[in-house]
Each structure stands twice: as C-alpha cells, then as structure tokens.
Design a protein around this nucleic acid. Structure first.
Lengths: 155, 155
DNA sequence: CCAAAAAGTTGATCTATGGTAAGATATAGC
DNA sequence: GCTATATCTTACCATAGATCAACTTTTTGG
C-alpha cells in the first residue's frame, strides 16, 4: 500500500516496474471505486490530496511487485526553477491526464457498460491482462456479475 | 456558438460576463452530453482539441449574452516565456480542473442520480439558477424526465 | 500435489432510470 | 396581452444493471 486514505500526500510516484491501482474505499458499502490503473512509465498518486494539500481520500495500492521512484512535491517545485522545460513537461503530463479524464466522463455519459468495456480493452489491452475482472468492473462502475454477463454475451 | 465540432481549436476563452456550456452533440440519437458549464472568471474551450491539436469534438455555446476574451495558444506559449509565473498559474488552473474531473468521475461511480443532483446544486447554486433543467439533466447523465421525478421527490 | 481461499459464473428477482406520449407551465415574439 | 414555442411534468411501461445466493473454476500457500 503506497498511500492510505487519511495520509498526508507530499509525493508522487513514477512506476519503473509493476502495476498499481488508485481507488476510493467505501467501508460502509464494503466496496471500492477504482479511479485508475497505472503501469510502467506512468505516474501515480492521490492527486486530489497532492494538489490540494488535503488528507488522502484515495488508496494507492500495488497489484504486483513494484519498483517505484518517488519525488517530494517541494523538491519537484524547486527543480522546476532549476531545470529548463521541466515545468512544461509536467504541464503536458497533466494536460494528457485531463484529456483522459474528460474522455472518461463523456464515455460515462454516452455509453452503455458493454461499450465502455469494449473501449477499455481496446485502449488498455495490456492492463486488461494484468488486473482482475472484478477490478475492471469497479473501474467501469458496474458489478462483477454484470461484467461477467457482458463477457459471456460477447463471445 | 463559440466552437463548433469539427473546428480547429487554437484559442481558449476567458469569461468576463455570461454563461457557456461545453457539450458533445450526438446527432444520431438527437442528444447532447454536457461536459461542463462555465461562468464569469472561468475559462472555456474544447480542451481535448486544444491540447491535442485535433478537430473539435465538442461544441462550446453561449447560454446568455456573453463577453469573452480569447487568447491564441501560440501567444499564450510565448507569454509563458516572457511573464514570470504565468505558466505556473495555468498549471495551477489545470490542476484544479483535473481535481474537479476526478471528483466527478468518482461521483459517477459512487452516487445515484439523486445524490449527484444534490451535489450539483450544493456545489454550483448560481449555475443551477442560470441554466435549464434539461441541461442539468444532460450534465448529470440522466433524462429530463428522471430529473423532474427527482425534483418532485425532494420536495 | 492438495486443501483453502479467491475469483468468476449463473439464475432469479428487484430497482433505478429510460422511453414514449400526453398534458401543463412558462417564455418569447409579435 | 396573445399566440406559438419551448420547457417541464406526469403516467405507464420497458430495460440495463444491481442484488442475492448458489455453484464452478482458478489461484495460492503449505
């Protein structure tokens, strides 16, 4: 477990090796809502907590043995001043994440669970191999039972 | 109409006065999916098109008489080099938008339509006054009929 | 290898929300 | 102010996906 809900989040993590998930635990309903998966070359954190300096509401958890690099927000900010183009690099990274989130919001508005599942395996074929179906269901916002039925209907 | 699907998007817009909506038109199903509303002091554009230099997939439309300021992406980028702290300012703006989108994804995963409506009027009380109910329904991902039923049940 | 636990599947039923159509209000243009 | 149009509401029925419970398959740890 890299980040646990309630933690103060001062770091973000670069994934050298492995696969992680970021999710909101909901103890009351005994459920979890997966915000994203992350694999090699991606960055992960609870970015709400990281950007707003508030306690984490999300857990970040390794789904496999992982090698991670971490950087303190403070250190990154002072690096921005020293390394030319670094801030632009992170701006670009954030733009990409923003675009991905907006697409996901649209896909939730427009598409059925089946279409979103098709889109998921089209867009993240390697991730689909590496994570459990019930985790994909959680990412898509449906139950494992529903995903199972969708998968059956597809064959 | 500020941006129309298919346009090349090279500008973003600052709202001095008025209210806009950004939405994906779906002619086939004769529907629209509202990505966001924007009011005074906010910025608007089709940011997917703007960041990825691809043709717009979204419409941006004024819902009232508006006063807008626009800036070319190119000009903004050269201003980044001239005005100290400007890039950080836009990075911060993007962080906030990112956080808002992530919260919306989580709320779609966790909450019922009624809870999302409550959250919407709590978070955007002024916007609720300024836009039509069927547009709020579109933003929430439900039909106007469902929203009407939710509103009735609340009283 | 084998037992236990975890994950996935299936069936029966339930519920939130959608679709359609009609009627009721509100808004805008003359 | 009055008509036309847009918006909102209501009723009835349909459907996607949820829930619950049982069962099967896969994975894991000893």
């Amino acid at each position: 477990m890299v980040i646990k809900a309630g933690d103060l989040v001062t770091k973000q993590y670069f994934i050298v090796k492995g696969c992680l998930r970021t999710y909101m635990p909901d103890d009351e309903r005994d459920r979890e809502y997966i915000v994203q998966f992350a694999v090699e070359e991606w960055w992960a954190s609870d970015y709400i907590a990281y950007y707003t300096n508030s306690p984490a509401t999300l857990d970040v958890e390794c789904l496999e043995d992982c090698i991670l690099l971490s950087i303190q927000k403070k250190d990154l900010e002072s690096l921005y001043l020293q390394v030319d183009g670094l801030e632009s690099f992170f701006l670009r990274k954030l733009e990409n994440a923003f675009v991905a989130f907006q697409k996901r919001i649209l896909s939730n508005l427009k598409e059925t669970a089946e279409q979103r599942y098709e889109e998921f395996i089209r867009q993240y074929p390697t991730i689909e191999q590496r994570v459990k179906n019930f985790q994909i269901a959680s990412y898509l916002g449906i139950t494992p039972e529903s995903l199972s039925r969708i998968r059956k209907a597809r064959q």
